[in-house]
Nucleic acid binder design. Structure first.
Lengths: 149, 149
DNA sequence: AAAAACAGTTGACAAAATCAACTTTATATG
DNA sequence: CATATAAAGTTGATTTTGTCAACTGTTTTT
């Protein structure tokens, strides 16, 4: 068995433990009234400030029709706003309203709290190690850009 | 900010990187004709050899009606079989047929291959480290039972 | 023996996601 | 320039996925 095959097996074992541990297999986002897909879209817009639907489709790999409807719903709810892009009138610049920003921040905070709950009983020392191991994994797999919220 | 809150934030950053990296946010299982939920059920039965619907519901946290239908479909497809439990006639002992076993093994193999593909270009040394970091995370979070396939 | 709890099935329904057709605007090619 | 081609986004139809509650038959509790 190759090293890569062995590692793949280890990774899958990790996934089988890790995903259910943090409830990462559900479709509702936490206790909230939003789906995971919706939350991801909100985070994406939050991260970029201004972004086109096209780019959301690309980075999140979701159907453009599906996204279109969600954005419509968000707009109706006063969560996102759209302005025509000056250059290309097909594109719209999507951004969060003040309400949308605070909603997204609230969701992030709740998500953090939810994760925090699972960490109860773990020593500060081990928590530190946890962070390090994760950072190392990201480094090895080639990540490490993008900010947090 | 508490250590736990800081760690929660790190974990969420990890998740945002890790989940899309291994395509863990989709509902279709790989290229296969099975959903993630179906694959998880198959793995569960595979792991236990014989298991009741009740226990699948408990460990996977899915709706029993939903499961009932999936099992019906699996049975119709010759993938699982059910026998009445001797003791309690309400329960049925669910197990995989030979066909179901080879299907599950095929899915696992494909999943492994899929993961392996993402590992291309990483040195054996780093792969080793990857496995270690993951094992450490599992240890810290309190896991470490169950086998692999 | 009656009541309560449990395993599983089914029907009705809601939510999530996909697919293809279509409109409008921009870009490429002759 | 003109026409073809492609891209961004919208919409309708449909499928897939998941939820909820009612119901049947069985076991356990009291």
């Amino acid at each position: 068995m190759s090293k890569a095959a062995q590692t793949a097996s280890d990774i899958r074992r990790f996934n089988r433990f890790y995903l259910p541990f943090f409830h990462l297999l559900t479709q509702k986002y936490l206790n909230s009234e939003y789906s995971v897909a919706e939350a991801r879209i909100l985070y994406e817009i939050y991260d970029y400030g201004k972004i086109s639907a096209r780019d959301i489709v690309k980075t999140l790999c979701i159907d453009k029709g599906y996204l279109s409807r969600m954005l419509k719903k968000f707009e109706a709810g006063g969560i996102v706003k759209r302005e025509e892009s000056g250059k290309d009138s097909r594109l719209s610049e999507i951004s969060l309203t003040a309400k949308g920003k605070s909603l997204t921040e609230r969701l992030a905070a709740e998500s953090n709290l939810q994760v925090e709950k699972e960490l109860a009983g773990i020593s500060d020392d081990d928590l530190e190690k946890l962070s390090c191991h994760m950072a190392e994994i990201i480094k090895i797999l080639g990540g490490g850009r993008d900010g947090d919220h």
